[in-house]
Design a binder for these strands. Structure first.
Lengths: 339, 339
DNA sequence: TTGAAAGCGCTACCAG
DNA sequence: CTGGTAGCGCTTTCAA
């Protein structure tokens, strides 16, 4: 419900104030107002500094909001930002969507999300977006590192396509990657286990960066970690290894995933090496229920919401001709009962 | 990368085929093509059936996709669909987003998501969207039943605003509500517990519909359920109640939420009433890790993805002048170790 | 430094 | 039933 304004000059019939309305109010032409209000003016878009300030003021008062559709229609494309995410219905993806949506909403950018898990899906998505000449793309191609995909990405970026990649192994010029610092996450797990006085160390499951960070932190302390698979067999072996733990010198276990961590708990349940005392356990992801398990799970939280925000901000800047560098985001440890 | 076409008549310079391209190819005027391709033609938009089929064919071959921004710009609004969801970073919300995004993407509708938990946020969202004259809104106002919100909703719908509400207590003419059948969910929990031979029954936590369904299924079987709060005190009382269970005649517990279910597990841990034998436990929501706890949790799955799909489809139909009824979606039981 | 005018892709109105 | 034309809100030549 729009508040009725005392001054009715240049107020729109319905909806929000547009360029035309601001122009009417200021008495300037639409062109000038457009240029003054454009945060990313093109070369020949010169406006007197004084005029710009004035227009900016009036526009602010009138609650001007640029119509992105019209902006990009004129520019020969579609305002919509394409988002490609893995189809995992968990808090990680939800957080990512929160972050992206938050800044896109603030900037009045619409989006279109596509969910899929595989490289093939990502390629389809790119083709689709190329044709639509979307203003830009944020994508989380699930750690894809595939030459065909790489070609497709390059193709997309050759024209006006702008792209930000999330947590991927792909490295391309002019395509900034926003990623989680997985090695740091692994280090954090090791450091917590070290600090809590563990005598022996295990890592369960495969995840390059996390494992690497874990081992290197251990090495820094003159210790060594043992590797176990996440399959039933590996877990069985881990369970028997854990019998060597005591309250004094617990065994420290790092599961590269919360899911794996819960499987470790299960493998250990019923035995006499209890998680939280004889065995200290750290997971990774901070999924929904990790705070409610018994014992509650110490885990590495990944700030996906922040990652989403950064990606969206970078993309918008890119679209308007800016330049962006890759960035690494630090996870943080959430200490609970299990370690 | 668009495939090069043998026939180059009416192929667009770049991007996808538009109305103009189809017109060029068929030799018809843009107006006719527009009407032929419009699935929701206005009153006076009459086209020869023969023409329509032909155009439809050609358009299909050319890979025509309507530019929604332009369509709605002309219609005096913005194509973007506003989506308002609770800011809960869990699989429920993720699933909802999946479902909505899936159909919107297929229909080339862009969207804008806003996350908030409270009625106040929803009102801000509506105001914002009213001004933007969004083509429509899907909202999950977190079970709100607030006269102020109701007024705002009515106001929004008075004009061209179209809206679909999710899981809300609000009931308004012309605003279809897509909701989960919570009573049925409660019934399912009771029936599972009955079937597994429980002798006594408890429900933990407050949630009207779910409780009601639970009790009524129990009543149908000539049984009665005891209510417990979800706070520490209530859980303590529940734990002592559960000591009455045996393998033969277990106590059946229905937690109205998975989180509560895990708290029940914790309250019972260490005692001699074990979940899965002396105590049978059913949760609600089927969150991320419920399949991995020990014992794994039997729970009621809510098909939020399907709910999202339905809501989006209904909204689109509404936008084009269709009529839609409210609908109730059935949850389903996921049987695991705890019951 | 400013303004007028063309045009992005589409629909709606009005003539034929 | 079909075609021409105006115009949605904006950017971008091009002239003044």
């Amino acid at each position: 419900m729009r508040k009725t304004n005392v001054c009715s000059v240049g107020m729109p019939a319905r909806g929000i104030a547009g360029l035309k309305d601001v122009a009417a109010r200021t008495g300037l032409s639409v062109s000038v107002v457009s240029r003054a209000l454009n945060p990313h003016p093109d070369k020949n878009a010169r406006v007197a500094e004084e005029t710009r300030k004035w227009v900016l003021n009036v526009a602010g008062e009138m609650g001007f909001r640029r119509n992105r559709s019209a902006e990009f229609m004129k520019r020969g494309g579609v305002a919509t930002i394409g988002v490609f995410l893995p189809a995992s219905p968990n808090r990680l993806v939800a957080d990512l969507v929160f972050g992206i949506a938050e800044v896109l909403e603030a900037e009045d950018f619409p989006m279109q999300i596509s969910f899929d898990n595989f490289a093939e899906g990502f390629r389809r998505f790119l083709e689709h977006n190329m044709d639509l000449s979307h203003s830009g793309v944020i994508s989380y191609p699930s750690l894809v590192d595939d030459p065909k995909v790489e070609a497709e990405v390059k193709d997309y970026c050759r024209g006006k396509g702008r792209m930000v990649l999330l947590n991927t192994a792909l490295r391309l010029d002019d395509v900034p990657v926003v990623a989680m610092d997985e090695e740091l996450g692994g280090r954090m797990a090791a450091e917590q286990l070290l600090e809590r006085g563990c005598g022996q160390f295990c890592v369960v499951g495969k995840c390059m960066g996390r494992q690497k960070g874990f081992h290197s932190a251990l090495a820094d302390a003159g210790r060594k970690g043992n590797e176990f698979n996440g399959d039933p067999d590996g877990l069985k072996r881990l369970a028997s290894f854990c019998r060597g733990g005591s309250e004094d010198r617990p065994v420290g276990v790092f599961a590269v995933t919360d899911i794996l961590a819960l499987r470790v708990m299960r493998a250990l349940s019923g035995g006499d090496a209890r998680v939280g005392t004889e065995v200290l356990l750290v997971g990774y992801d901070d999924l929904d229920l990790t705070g409610e398990t018994t014992p509650s799970l110490t885990t590495i939280h990944q700030p996906f919401r922040e990652e989403g925000r950064m990606a969206a901000r970078k993309l918008i800047n890119l679209i308007y001709g800016g330049k962006e560098d890759p960035v690494l985001i630090s996870p943080r440890l959430v200490a609970r009962e299990s370690a």
